[in-house]
């Protein structure tokens, strides 16, 4: 479980030009939860991601990962529990062959050779990379590279996987496939996933959405609950997916739409139901 308590963080603390990035954040994430953290640039979402994997440390308040506080002296304990994938795979892949890079993390843990081989194999399998295991990373597409980065994180067998905008450099269909793979991993391995993004349509695919703005937590709930606050979201510069915003406008004009509407299919079904009930 991730517990964030009264967390504040500022860049360049103690100096005159200290920049507050997070303010009094409280958050609890259960093991195995599939969470999207959303906000526009400068909302503090990436800072939060970096705090969760002990790249940064809290200025005030605390974060506990399965009870282990995120502090410098615990950094290695924290990193065993939380793995992270960043935006640009070129900046985090260390070795030049796919298998070798996936093995880099487990090698750092000092695991026996057989165990490393097992982890590399199963991670490659989970991301559908078995065939390209021997290829050179520089020859892969950006989407494949990002998959390799995720396989590398998975090979650490973390309790939580933090994805810091891993899809922002990818074409939409590739990003979608990546997200659905991450969803599968979450179900199969029971690993918690925190996906940092600025795309609302991606966030709609998660079981919980946390909205951040100016370093504060603004909204928190299921996608359906969050998308109901269309005005609030628009205020902080986030776009609600078209179907959800359309449903919101129809409802405000009196159309009695039932259920949670997140995408086009939901909206079609709800409208069909309305037509049936008015016809009868």
């Amino acid at each position: 479980m991730i517990e964030v308590k009264d967390l504040s963080f500022a860049y360049r603390t103690g100096e005159a030009d200290a920049v507050p990035a997070l303010r009094d954040l409280n958050l609890k994430i259960e093991p195995g939860q599939l969470v999207a953290i959303i906000g526009h640039n400068g909302s503090g979402k990436s800072t939060l991601a970096k705090l969760l994997c002990a790249v940064l440390y809290p200025t005030e308040g605390e974060i506990r990962i399965d009870g282990v506080p995120v502090r410098e002296e615990n950094q290695w304990e924290v990193r065993r529990r939380v793995a992270v994938v960043f935006q640009d795979p070129d900046d985090q892949l260390v070795m030049n062959r796919v298998e070798d890079d996936v093995a880099f993390g487990p090698e750092n843990l000092g695991l026996p050779r057989e165990e490393i081989a097992e982890r590399v194999r199963s991670s490659l399998e989970a991301l559908g990379l078995v065939e390209i295991g021997g290829r050179l990373i520089e020859d892969l597409s950006p989407g494949q590279k990002q998959r390799v980065a995720i396989a590398g994180a998975l090979a650490m067998r973390p309790r939580f996987l933090v994805l810091d905008e891993p899809t922002s450099l990818l074409p939409v269909p590739v990003a979608r496939r990546l997200i659905s793979t991450v969803g599968d991993l979450n179900r199969r391995e029971g690993m918690g996933v925190l996906h940092v993004t600025h795309s609302m349509s991606e966030a709609a695919l998660f079981e919980r959405v946390v909205v951040m703005d100016e370093g504060c937590l603004v909204l928190d709930g299921t996608p359906a609950e969050v998308f109901r606050h269309v005005e609030r979201l628009r205020e902080i510069g986030l776009d609600v997916p078209l179907a959800a915003s359309l449903a919101h406008r129809l409802r405000s004009r009196g159309t009695p739409l039932e259920g949670d509407i997140l995408d086009g299919a939901d909206l079609r079904n709800a409208l069909a139901a309305v037509r049936e009930s008015t016809a009868s």
């Binding site: 290695w76 960043f86 993390g105 026996p112």
Partner: peptide, 26 residues
């Protein structure tokens, strides 16, 4: 900038110097 990012990434992948490492390939 890249060197900085790579260092961070290696740290998050538990790289803490060669002493603790084991090797997949021999």
């Amino acid at each position: 900038a890249r060197a900085d990012l790579l260092t961070t990434a290696m740290n998050t992948r538990s790289y803490r110097g060669g002493r603790y490492r084991t090797k997949l390939r021999q």
